[in-house]
Design a protein around this nucleic acid. Sequence first.
DNA 1: CGCACTCTGTGACTTAGTCACATACTTGCC
DNA 2: GGCAAGTATGTGACTAAGTCACAGAGTGCG
Lengths: 226, 226
Amino acid sequence: MISDPSIIDQITARFRFLQGADADFIRHFFNSSTITHLASDQPICQQGMHCSHLALVIEGTARVYKIGENGREITLYRIGPGESCILTASCIMSRKPFPAFAISEEPIKALILSSADVVRWSNQEATWRDYLFQLISDRLGDVISVVEEVAFRRVDRRLVSYLLQHIENNGMHMQVTHQSIASDLGTSREVVSRILKDFEQQGMISTSRGTITLEDRHRLSEKLTE
Amino acid sequence: MISDPSIIDQITARFRFLQGADADFIRHFFNSSTITHLASDQPICQQGMHCSHLALVIEGTARVYKIGENGREITLYRIGPGESCILTASCIMSRKPFPAFAISEEPIKALILSSADVVRWSNQEATWRDYLFQLISDRLGDVISVVEEVAFRRVDRRLVSYLLQHIENNGMHMQVTHQSIASDLGTSREVVSRILKDFEQQGMISTSRGTITLEDRHRLSEKLTE
DNA sequence: CGCACTCTGTGACTTAGTCACATACTTGCC
DNA sequence: GGCAAGTATGTGACTAAGTCACAGAGTGCG
């Protein structure tokens, strides 16, 4: 049960469906939920698990990914504040085992609901139901985008997009290993290393152990259309 | 409006959510829906469309797919009797444009609902809501499987799986072009042609224009584990 | 038959993924 | 400081997959 008013405010701000909900539901909601904290790089769900709880992320991020026969990984999507491990929701609603892995990245503060409540509220509370539908639909869209990426786009272009997205405007630096980029993109470390080396030789980036620095954003982005 | 009792029986048999529904909802359901027929190979949804109706397939099949920059295609999933173009449902519930293409394969007989009804019923009728959740969740699972396939599995193995699945037990024949296999798997026609030729030279299949014949099912399936 | 159209085959080349190692850079510990 | 263990990156050689530009074969039809 959650009673601290400042926490309740924080949660209400993050989860907009609570703003339109009726007072009765809100009371139930906070009465039957709890807060959990989780450090970085902690496993959340294992492939094949049955989900008995749903976590709504208040702070932090998690990564949901697949592992292939060969050990390679690919990120399906990330979960941030205001979102929820919707695969869990999907598993709860359709009573199926979880088809992927989830792990925390930045330390997580999350609200935990029992799957029984998730199902019950989806029958009773329109705003909660809308939130669930929205979440599942969004993830479906995300995953379809991933299919498009891996099926059709060249790895070097995908890597350019990755760098442009992750290195903030004129922030210029980024802390990341080649392996973790490879795991995001669903390719292998060697491929990432080689392409990065190529970019470096062309003067678009520079690299050192564990960091990549953007040297020429404009010329790098031209790679997308050449 | 649908009133023919034999059609109503057929639909009720296909869509199990109607069996547990209350009489009032069922009356509304058939009053506000219509039947459409569609020939083979007709476009259903274009990428970027907004969906104003939801189709529940009674007979026939449709294919939902993506097209890449290079013109290659990949099938995300198929829709059969008792199912529905759930991407449409997802678009309706989350008010987003349709992110793929859909086309009829076998001629379709389908029941058409307005998106307004879809949303209204999802608020009022538990069995309908469950049906929607189930459908979206299933598709999410399907698409995740596709990601896994294209990201990690070798094309020759995927092609073996495709052949074993599509050529019925001891039916032995299949009518299909290399191009349409390639479009299903998300690869190119040449690659499919070369791998099939290879299988043929090893005596596992034989081919002629537009057909593939399974000659040695057992040895072909060994390719999956070698 | 001859023409248009679709389907399949092939070589040469580029891109991507795998495997086996060789070098680094970092951290902690003596 | 120096050394060891662990992590990160570099590289060559090879296989798998995708692209491009054609060449043929099969089919349907006037």
